[in-house]
């Protein structure tokens, strides 16, 4: 059983990682959801035991592990909050860039950096020329 879970978690994680590396921001978010789900799968598989309901053990069988369910639920909720956050950021990216592509985002950033470098360059040149004047 653990093996099946391990394979499933691996496949889900791989699919998620693949999606994260694509160009479409919505797919990136979907990839993060998949990765979070693979973590949940690992959490579930970490305490797989068969037994009675832990809330009221009858004594015939050992109760199953209740902690795993609690952890998985918490992980799911955190995954949900995180997905909401990522979607909010993506919505803002779309609003400002009018695009949902990672490439566009990178291009915008590269342009911004170039502008910054240029402004620094002009600043340094000016300072240098100011100093030269003072020396004269």
């Amino acid at each position: 059983m653990t093996l099946i879970f391990a394979i499933a978690a691996g496949v889900v994680f791989g699919a998620g990682a693949f999606l994260v590396l694509t160009n479409d921001l919505v797919r990136v978010v979907a990839g993060m959801v998949l990765i979070s789900q693979s973590a949940v799968l690992v959490v579930i598989s970490s305490g797989l035991t068969r037994g009675d309901a832990p809330i009221l053990p009858t004594g015939d069988k050992t109760p199953s592990d209740p902690l795993v369910q609690a952890m998985a639920l918490t992980a799911i909720v955190i995954g949900l909050a995180v997905t909401a956050l990522l979607l909010a950021i993506v919505a803002r990216v779309r609003a400002t860039l009018r695009s949902l592509e990672v490439r566009e985002l990178a291009r915008d950033e590269a342009e911004h950096t170039a502008e910054l470098e240029q402004s620094l360059d002009t600043m340094h040149e000016q300072l240098a020329s100011d100093e030269a004047k003072e020396e004269q």
Binding site: A9, V20, S36, V43, V82, I89, V93
Partner: peptide, 25 residues
Amino acid sequence: HQLGAALIFAVVNLVGSFLFLIAVA
């Protein structure tokens, strides 16, 4: 321009967080 950085920050660190969760499990 900060949005791109924020997105990268969030995605990379989330992968880190989920790896942590896997290690906890």
